[in-house]
C-alpha cells in the first residue's frame, strides 16, 4: 500500500520541480493577492490586540488612520490591569475551560457512539432515526431556549452535603446546566455517521471473525481510523460552547459560575471601556486560537474528506 501511495506522489513532486520556474513567477500576483487577503482578515484581530494596549482616547484618535492597526503612541498594559479590576476574569476563564472541555469530551464520546450505531450497525429504522436527528438541525436554539429554561429549572439533581446525598430540584446556577444539554449534537452525529460510513466494512467483518463485539470494533478499529473527524467535531463543539452567551445568561445567575462571554458585557457601561473590552477580548480569544491551530491540519483534512463546508 505504501509503495502504491508514494509512487504517484513522487511523480507529482518531480513534475512540480520541472515546472517550478515559470509557474512560480506566474503565481507572484496570486500570492500577493492572497497575502493582502490574509492581512484583510487579520485586521480585526490586529486591531483588537493593538487597541488593548492603548488608552480609550487614543483608540478614537487613531480610528481615522492606519495608526489604528499599529502599536504606536502611549502603549501600556493598563487595560489588562483594568480587566482584572472589573471582571473576575480568571474565574470566568476557568469556568469556560471546564465547561468546554467536559462538553467536548462527553460530546465526542456520545456523538461518535451514536454515529457509529447509525452508520455501521444494521438495525431496522436506523435511516429514519438518522433523518430525524438531521431534521432537528432546522430548529434554531433560540426558539427552544425558554422552554428549556423552564424544564431545567424543574429537573432533579443529586448532590452531597458532606456524605449525605440530597436531591435538589432545578439545575439553575450549576455547571451541569451548561454542559449536559449540549453533549448530544445532531450535526456531530451526522459528521461521525458520514465519516464512519466511509471506512470499509470489511474491517468490521475481519474484527468480528477475530471475536470483537461492537464496542471493541468501535474502539479498536473505527476510532483509530477517524482522527480527522474527531478533531473536526472537537473544534465544532468547542467554538459554540466557548462562545455561548444566551444560555448561560439565562440559567446562571451566580457570578462564580459564569463563563467568559458574559464577561464581555461587563465593559458595556454608560461610558464603555473600549480599551479594557479589547484587552478582555484578547484574553478570551487566545484559547480559541490555540485550539484551532492545534487541530488545524486534521480539521482541514476532515472537512475536505467529508465535503462539509459549514
Amino acid at each position: 500500500m505504501a509503495t502504491i501511495d508514494q509512487a504517484p506522489g513522487a511523480a507529482v513532486t518531480a513534475s512540480r520541480t520541472r515546472e517550478a520556474g515559470p509557474r512560480a513567477s506566474g503565481r507572484v500576483p496570486l500570492y500577493l493577492l492572497l497575502v493582502l487577503l490574509s492581512l484583510f482578515f487579520l485586521f480585526p484581530v490586529v486591531f483588537m490586540l493593538v487597541s488593548s494596549l492603548k488608552p480609550d482616547d487614543q483608540i478614537f484618535q487613531d480610528l481615522g488612520s492606519g495608526a489604528a492597526f499599529l502599536p504606536v503612541g502611549e502603549l501600556s498594559l493598563d487595560n489588562y490591569a483594568g480587566v482584572f479590576d472589573r471582571v473576575p476574569a480568571i474565574r470566568f476563564l476557568l469556568n469556560s475551560v471546564f465547561v468546554t472541555v467536559v462538553t467536548v469530551l462527553l460530546g465526542l464520546f456520545v456523538n461518535s457512539l451514536a454515529g457509529f450505531a447509525l452508520s455501521r450497525m444494521e438495525w431496522r429504522g436506523r435511516k429514519l432515526i438518522l433523518a430525524l436527528v438531521i431534521a432537528t438541525l432546522i430548529i434554531p436554539f433560540e426558539t427552544v431556549a425558554l422552554p428549556m429554561v423552564y424544564w431545567v429549572a424543574k429537573l432533579p439533581w443529586l448532590e452531597f452535603e458532606g456524605l449525605r446525598p440530597v436531591i435538589e430540584q432545578g439545575w439553575l446556577n450549576s455547571y451541569q446546566v451548561q454542559i449536559l444539554p449540549f453533549v448530544a449534537n445532531a450535526f456531530s452525529i451526522f459528521l461521525f455517521a458520514q465519516y464512519f460510513g466511509s471506512i470499509p466494512r470489511s474491517l468490521d467483518e475481519a474484527a468480528r471473525v477475530d471475536g470483537c463485539g461492537w464496542f471493541r470494533i468501535y474502539r479498536k478499529v473505527v476510532v483509530p481510523l477517524s482522527g480527522p473527524v474527531f478533531a473536526t467535531v472537537a473544534i465544532l463543539t468547542f467554538l459554540p460552547v466557548w462562545n455561548s452567551y444566551l444560555w448561560p445568561l439565562m440559567v446562571v445567575q451566580e457570578e462564580s459560575k459564569r463563563p467568559v462571554m458574559i464577561g464581555v458585557q461587563y465593559f458595556n457601561q454608560l461610558t464603555p471601556a473600549w480599551g479594557e473590552t479589547m484587552a478582555y477580548s484578547t484574553l478570551i480569544t487566545i484559547p480559541v486560537l490555540v485550539v484551532f491551530l492545534s487541530f488545524q491540519r486534521a480539521f482541514v483534512r476532515s472537512i475536505a474528506a467529508s465535503g462539509v463546508k459549514g
Binding site: A145, V152, L172, L246, M250, Q253, I262, Q265, Q269
Partner: peptide, 20 residues
C-alpha cells in the same frame, strides 16, 4: 447578585419563566 446591564433584562425574563 450582579449582572451586566446589557444582559440584564434577558436574565429577568428567563428567571420569571423559571419562577426563579
Amino acid at each position: 447578585e450582579f449582572f451586566p446591564q446589557a444582559a440584564y433584562n434577558d436574565a429577568i425574563v428567563a428567571a420569571a419563566t423559571a419562577g426563579d
